[in-house]
Design a protein around this nucleic acid. Sequence first.
DNA 1: CTGCTCAACTTGTTGGAACAAGTTGATGCT
DNA 2: AGCATCAACTTGTTCCAACAAGTTGAGCAG
Lengths: 257, 257
Amino acid sequence: MSKQPKYQQVADTLRREMAKGTYGPGDRLPSESELSARFEASRNTVRAGLNQLVSEGLISSSQGLGYMVRKHEVFELNASKFENLSFPQVGDAYNTNVTDAGRRPHQTFRVELTAMPEYVAKRLQAEAGAVSVLRFCHRYVDDVPWSTQATYYPQWLMQEAPRLTEPGDVAEGTTRYLAGLGIEQIGYFDEIATRMPTPEEARLLEIGAGVPVLLWTRVGYSASRPIRCTRTTFRGDLNRMNYEIGDLSARRENEPQ
Amino acid sequence: MSKQPKYQQVADTLRREMAKGTYGPGDRLPSESELSARFEASRNTVRAGLNQLVSEGLISSSQGLGYMVRKHEVFELNASKFENLSFPQVGDAYNTNVTDAGRRPHQTFRVELTAMPEYVAKRLQAEAGAVSVLRFCHRYVDDVPWSTQATYYPQWLMQEAPRLTEPGDVAEGTTRYLAGLGIEQIGYFDEIATRMPTPEEARLLEIGAGVPVLLWTRVGYSASRPIRCTRTTFRGDLNRMNYEIGDLSARRENEPQ
DNA sequence: CTGCTCAACTTGTTGGAACAAGTTGATGCT
DNA sequence: AGCATCAACTTGTTCCAACAAGTTGAGCAG
């Protein structure tokens, strides 16, 4: 009859019910003891099933409150538009993006001088451990942690662009500030990866088990050399990245919304 | 002294040891009973700690064999080069990409007529449930499941490009075949997202708990309308996507390898 | 009515036990 | 040698029990 383990059946049944709408986003699931009675299984077995749904990112749990069906409204980031090469935007690209979507941005800043991690050094064509300017920020949308971003600038840039080391935001945006000094980024190389968060990342982004992070690494180049390396860590459940390639006039004509 | 739960300490300690190299990729961890003795904890507690590492994607387990430290050699896919707009490659883009990396590609094909899922219909500017040609393939690299890919073509294309409905591969590649018929894709819109796999995906890609999938949706456009919608599901631990934007001559001059 | 306490929920943590099932290597038979 | 068997490992599944800790609402004291 049923070759599958019982905790698996619990997970499958609940997953199906969530897909069908019996339990919608934000709803509370029955408690462990109720499920235990319903499935004629011990509390441990039910917990194993619920745990599986947690690692799939479908539900979350909190002590005293029970299990909730996760809701995920995704935020789309058009990476090929994010910093327009020909017409650098006024102000910070992130603020513009979020405000345009009708949501409230908020960010905290930190600047420090630090040795480059190996992967940054490789991308900035520098020695591993070379000194760099690190601008770190933690971003929120509607007070929900959204992403952390670390941008590394090579040491030679400190002389030409001293304001990079100033604490706090550069009002007109760092890209535009650098362009004003004749240091223009004319090309980007983007890498996108995904993995489960480290405990540190899980803490900063306030994500529980079962939600992967999206890693976006962008290296900006001038005509002769790399200018900066930005590593952004997104909550994978809340973000999606878009790229436009080639001629998309056919899309824009019929664009929804 | 130790406010953290014991299973957390087990996970943290083992994670630190893996980072330090005490246990390297491919190594076998001590058995549950050994760890139980070492940490003076019950088997249940040790299992809870190991489970956390599994959901982080750091280790995997198999019955009878024990726990192994996962190794991840990532495969990079340059999405802005993958199908060159100006010079369509001869043959299949995937085969070329994998062979160039010195690895052995293998794929299984399936073609069917089917109703479009909602998200495809929206992107192809068609009615939800409209008939479409679905070309589905399951791809392997060195016999390891790599990705599944589903490409939907709108119904109007069936008249102009009958070979799309033929079972089996189109030798010169579908993009090139369509271009030969005067149906040229001059623009792409890419969306990239991540989430935990559904049980179905976990089965097809042979990934256990703790490995997210990378979802790549590409819509190809002609001058007047969308031509196809391709949804690729990658194993997140083995794949990374790259995009090149703007002028990267400075990168190519100093490119490693 | 306000505010506090507390009982009654919830999940979190940890221990114990037993059997099922997959893997491997030693043992012994052909 | 080759092969089958089996004992001794491994993790997987399932139960039981107890207490810790977070949350909420009822009810009581002021």
